[in-house]
Design a protein around this nucleic acid. Structure first.
Length: 814
DNA sequence: TGGCATTATGCCATT
DNA sequence: CATAATGCCA
């Protein structure tokens, strides 16, 4: 029983009686009028437009507490969904803190995906699954798709499986099942997209597996096709809260609308200016349309910012004002003090990293007029993860402690995935993908040929691969070393499977109980089996890794990373401790893709702008503000003006992370693909309101043009102090910047090292460029005449084609 | 079948 | 430049 059940307000009271029992609500006192309105407007649809730093989470958590305190709902009758585990965790902690007890009693507070897993486990059979289905990761997904593509005439060189995965994901985000796809999608993936999608879904069911998109999609389909099931949940979830509503995709939107359809007690919190996930299917339209979707809704605007100084807010506002479709919010603050946003240009990316490193050291020593600052209070927010390297390199050489947030994830490491595949083979008899992964890892002399035989036998008999292997062995179809090894493996798998703790429910019946009229929420369930004693899942895990020879494989490996991998495996087994069984752990890993490092040492944080959403730091560095990098060329190519707007929102998110000091920088030259390119300052820099910006003069730019050779004042702290305190908009730097943006459209090159490519010219074709043509395939441009290109195609020879029929090799020709 | 060298390709962001 | 994928050879 959860601690919430002892919460005295609920004891034996009927809903109406509970509702009337008004209790003191001291927690409301700390709220401003708007926040208070967002909390107290409990019935009916509410849209909370919450700008950055306006106390959104506070309002949201207080609302939950208020719902509980006024007896409107019991803890397990509130559905609260977020996008990230971090957000869910924070909400749980804060609600728990306000109530003075653990919030474990809120089973339906979680991410969209984790809530959907719960729902889907209960009703798996309605989707053609068993309740212990596996959640595939991207790797498995790609591998499966590759197998299916191999059965079609499609050339997977030209049409990579990755792309198909993206296409299918897009469909799932829009809640489109194979038979609901509009005819316009028929041409996707060389005309085979729809059929491959259909087969992929079929194969997933056979494997008793789902991918990420399926978690939402299956539940939506179940709700749509089983009104009785939907109705139960409509009644069960008395109040619905949604965080980051601007990030919802079509599937999530439908899901919410279905669940809120009856009582419409739904409170969506979001900020259209922070919608930065369009590329993964988020529809800003959802939030823009809220009032139409839910007639009679209350709209509350949280605009008072408690985070940043006035200059930082003004800079952010100035940038975001460039966007057209906005619901319109203007952040304001009661604060009056504060530094302006700092802007500085550098010669190249390394110089930028060096300067930021020195700046951070200066701040942490407190030599900048303010007291010493902890490294924990500083962050570098980059547009693309590859930008992180320059900083890592630099910080390693100067010994500046840093942490990369959202870097390579623990659970994505090879050894962890291998180990997990072993666990999956043991717990999931039909998990062929896992079996394929481990059958020859460590090497067992089972190469392509042997694996093919297993596949064929399995297919002929219509059984999973492990069983296929068993049959193959019985038929003496595989001799020699490989045969003996395979026999040993199958034997081991049998032994491990016998040790797995017996079957049990994959969901927790305590999550809900009975509806108000006494009707059980879902059909009666088998009771949970008592915990088995002897062989714990941790021991089992260790045994599996040992007996399979997997541990030995790394012990015998003399590569430098082998010890680290063994260490990771140990950590993996240790992590098992927190779970009741292997299945539970596998699910955790599939869903919780973040690695919280609990190191206590102060470190600078390096992360992407996307990863920074929801965070704040006293000092923020925003490097790499160059056209093509930020806004990213790809985003602009793919989505045009809409792309630029999303990038602009990203800029807004970045600036609003800063509490006191915000430093934007750009570099004139940057190495991309091992080649030097020169770049122009980001168009967003022009949009910064001059009155709120300090232009710093970079070291190395005294005298001479922007591209002039740099002086060698590099590490001199004296110079740095001068630089840091420079306070002239009329500085050479600023003028130069203005000049540079004025000549934006003029072709321009000024490099002194290596090749320079003018980024502004990249929209048109150049001789020698590699391109792709729908019909002729790949080729290189040999000549350009007006809008016609002469191209030497690899397969089709030299042809003349109209320029608009060719694309860059990595673009998607639909 | 497994190891190595060469070659093509990619550098957006995530549950 | 760095890695994944491919092809060749022992």
């Amino acid at each position: 029983m959860s601690s919430f059940d002892e919460f005295d307000a609920f004891e034996g009271a009927s809903l109406s009686a509970r509702a009337m029992a008004a209790r003191p609500a001291p927690y409301l006192d700390g709220l401003n009028p708007e926040q208070r309105a967002a909390v107290e407007t409990m019935d009916g649809p509410v849209l909370m437009l919450a700008g950055a730093g306006t106390g959104k989470t506070k309002a949201l958590t207080t609302r939950i507490v208020h719902l509980l305190n006024t007896g409107r709902a019991r803890p397990n009758e509130i559905l609260a969904v977020t996008f990230t585990n971090k957000a869910a965790r924070e909400m749980k902690n804060r609600v728990g803190g306000m109530l003075g007890q653990s919030a474990e009693g809120m089973p339906w507070l979680g991410t969209f995906h984790s809530v959907c897993v719960k729902l889907l486990r209960r009703h798996a059979e309605l989707a053609g699954l068993k309740s212990n289905f596996t959640i595939l990761d991207t790797d498995d997904q790609i591998r499966l798709l590759k197998q299916l593509i191999a059965l079609t005439p499609i050339d997977d060189k030209r049409w990579p499986a990755r792309m198909l995965a993206g296409v299918i994901d897009g469909w799932k985000n829009r809640a489109l099942t194979p038979d609901k796809l509009p005819a316009s999608e028929g041409g996707a993936y060389g005309g085979y997209g729809v059929e491959l999608y259909r087969q992929y879904q079929k194969r997933l069911l056979e494997l008793n597996a789902v991918d990420f998109g399926d978690l939402l999609l299956h539940v939506v389909v179940i709700f749509q096709t089983h009104p009785d099931v939907l109705q139960q949940y409509q009644r069960w979830f008395k109040y619905i809260l949604v965080d980051e509503y601007q990030d919802t995709n079509v599937a999530q939107y439908l899901w919410l609308r279905l669940l809120a359809g009856a009582h419409k007690n739904i409170c969506c919190v979001g900020d259209d200016d922070q919608s930065i996930y369009g590329w993964r299917g988020a529809e800003v339209g959802n939030i823009l349309r809220f009032e139409k979707d839910f007639p009679g809704s209350h709209v509350v605007r949280l605009e008072q910012n408690y985070r940043s100084t006035p200059h930082i807010l003004a800079a952010a506002s100035g940038v975001i004002a460039g966007n057209a479709e906005r619901l319109g919010k203007e952040l304001w603050t009661a604060e009056t003090e504060g530094e302006k946003v700092r802007l500085i240009g550098h010669w190249d990316g390394e110089e930028e990293a060096r300067w930021i490193g020195e700046e951070i050291e200066a701040m942490s020593r407190g030599t900048r007029g303010r007291g010493p600052m902890s490294l924990d209070d500083m962050a570098i927010l980059v547009r693309a993860s590859h930008q992180m390297r320059a900083f890592e390199d630099r910080f390693l050489t100067i010994g500046l402690p840093y942490r990369v947030i959202g870097g390579p994830r623990f659970y994505e490491r090879m050894e962890i995935r291998d180990a997990m595949a072993y666990f999956r083979v043991v717990t999931q008899p039909s998990d062929d993908l896992a079996f394929e992964r481990i059958v020859n890892t460590p090497k067992r002399g089972l190469g392509d040929k042997a694996q093919q035989k297993i596949q064929v036998t399995a297919r002929e008999n219509g059984v999973p691969l492990v069983e296929g292997a068993r049959i193959l062995l019985a038929q003496k179809g595989l001799g020699g070393k490989g045969g003996a090894e395979l026999a040993k493996l199958v034997e081991s798998i049998d032994r491990w499977r016998a040790m797995v703790r017996g079957p049990e429910l994959m969901f927790d019946p305590d999550d809900d109980a009975v509806l108000d009229d006494g009707e059980p929420l879902i059909a009666p369930m088998e009771p949970k089996k008592p915990a088995a004693g002897a062989a714990s899942h941790m021991e089992l895990a260790e045994q599996i890794l040992d007996e399979s020879g997997y541990t030995a494989m790394w012990q015998n490996d003399k590569s430098p990373e082998a010890p680290g991998r063994l260490e990771n495996l140990k950590e993996l087994v240790k992590a098992l401790e927190q779970f009741d069984n292997l299945q539970g752990f596998l699910e955790h890993v599939a869903l919780i893709m973040d690695n919280e490092s609990d190191d206590r040492d102060a470190k600078v944080s390096i992360m992407t702008l996307h990863a920074a959403k929801g965070l704040e730091f006293p000092a923020v560095f925003l490097p790499g503000w160059e056209d093509g990098l930020f806004p990213s060329q790809r985003s602009m190519d793919e989505s045009g003006q809409k792309g630029v707007e999303e990038e602009r929102r990203l800029a807004y998110v970045g600036i609003t992370r800063a509490e006191e000091i915000c430093t934007i920088s750009f570099a004139g030259n940057r190495r991309v693909f091992g080649q030097w390119q020169n770049a122009m300052p980001s168009r967003f820099i022009d949009e910064l309101p001059v009155d709120h910006v300090d232009v710093l003069t970079p070291p190395g730019l005294y005298g001479g043009g922007f591209g002039a050779a740099q002086g060698d004042f590099g590490a001199s702290s004296k110079i740095n102090e001068r630089v840091a305190s420079a306070d002239v908009y009329n500085s050479p730097g600023w003028k130069r910047m203005q000049a540079r943006s004025a000549q934006r459209d003029t072709a321009h090159s000024s490099g002194t090292r290596g090749v320079t490519i003018d980024m502004a010219a990249s929209s048109s074709r150049t001789v020698g460029e590699r391109v792709f043509h729908q019909k002729f395939g790949y080729g290189a441009i040999t000549a350009i005449e007006g809008d016609k290109l002469e191209i030497d195609f690899e397969k089709a020879g030299i042809k003349k084609v109209v320029a608009k029929f060719v694309t860059s090799p990595d673009d998607i020709p639909f």
